[in-house]
């Protein structure tokens, strides 16, 4: 299975966008090599600002640029992009609904060996509770290319989350994505697995394993956490009535919670959530962490059996 870097895709598409539109600006906080914006600096030095280790200032500068019609991308890690500059995002960007984008690598457990200080497992919940904010995590390299472009084209603040480690390629360059529309990538009738970001691949793997056991699972890539595609969730409720959510995030307040809200309001259907069980993880290789903390296809299969009472 081929793996490709989602942050590399971000760096590449940012350069494409920069070439097409001189309103695209980039603001980094000392980690441009890591968030893959260095090429943008070489190509467009007068639109790239490394403002040092000062994330709050980064958010404010982005807000100021956005008031003048620029489209700034703040580029940092998910922990800093969602928490160190949270109030600035909330008050200076989202409240006045300014057209600034917060693009973060190192989402979820993907910073692996850097440990819990650098693993962002709270950011989905934080970001989705801010009015005017759109929250997206693409499922692979090609999805990043398309969704970053869509985020640049739409008006308003967007939180875009990527991974540190490369993740399996599941799409082709021809696949299309629409912000706010979940993508059904495998059909199935018995159970619905709804996943986001780096967990979409695990969901596909689990669906295969279930298939071998004679269980037909559909897989939905819910790349946009907010606005959530409630229609596709309701379709899943009507078709299978049994939903498993999978996310590289705390089990509280992320995708599982968002989908449970829809399910609860329809009054039918069952949900099981796969995510980090409200705990800080630890240092370690990313894939081993996924296994240890239950974010893998085996755990999805266990949850599927539970829900199907097998």
């Amino acid at each position: 299975m081929e793996k490709k870097g989602t942050r590399d895709a971000f760096g590449e598409v940012l350069c494409e966008l920069g070439r097409e539109n001189d309103k695209i600006f980039v603001i980094d906080a000392d980690i441009s090599a890591s968030t893959k914006t260095t090429k943008f600096y070489e190509l467009f030095p007068d639109r790239a600002f490394d403002i040092g280790i000062a994330e709050q200032n980064a958010a404010g500068i982005a807000a100021g640029l956005a008031t003048t019609g620029k489209i700034p991308f703040i580029s940092t890690y998910a922990v800093f992009g969602s928490m160190r500059m949270l109030e600035q995002i909330r008050t200076s960007i989202c409240y006045p609904n300014l057209n600034a984008k917060i693009a973060v690598s190192h989402g979820g457990l993907t910073p692996g060996n850097d440990g819990p200080t650098h693993q962002a497992i709270e950011d989905f919940g934080i970001m989705r509770s801010i009015p005017n904010m759109t929250v997206i995590m693409p499922g692979d390299y090609y999805a990043v290319k398309k969704l970053v472009r869509k985020a640049a084209e739409m008006y308003g603040p967007v939180y875009l989350r990527f991974t540190r480690d490369s993740i399996p390629v599941i799409y082709t360059p021809e696949d299309e994505f629409e912000i706010g529309k979940g993508k059904r990538i495998k059909e199935g009738n018995d159970i619905s697995i709804i996943a986001i970001g780096d967990m979409v691949y695990a969901a596909l793997q689990a669906a295969e394993k279930l298939n071998e056991m004679g269980i037909s699972a559909e897989v939905i890539d819910m790349h946009t956490l907010k606005p959530l595609d409630a229609d596709i969730v309701k379709e899943a409720i009507d078709k299978t009535g049994k939903i498993i959510t999978v996310e590289d995030h705390n089990i509280i307040n992320g995708l599982g919670s968002a989908i449970s809200e829809v399910v609860a309001e329809t009054g039918k259907g069952i949900v099981r959530r796969v995510g980090i069980n409200d705990t800080f993880a630890e240092s370690g290789e990313y894939t081993l962490l996924l296994e240890k903390y239950g974010l893998d296809s085996n755990n999805i299969v266990i949850k599927a059996k539970e829900i199907l009472r097998l």
Partner: peptide, 28 residues
């Protein structure tokens, strides 16, 4: 609230945030 009051150039109220926004406007 810049979106409500004609003539306001920025939304503020949480102290410490305005100068950064000014930097962004000046850069632009």
């Amino acid at each position: 609230d810049m979106k409500k009051t004609p003539g306001l150039d920025m939304t503020t109220g949480s102290l410490g945030q305005g100068l950064s926004v000014g930097v962004g406007m000046a850069i632009a």
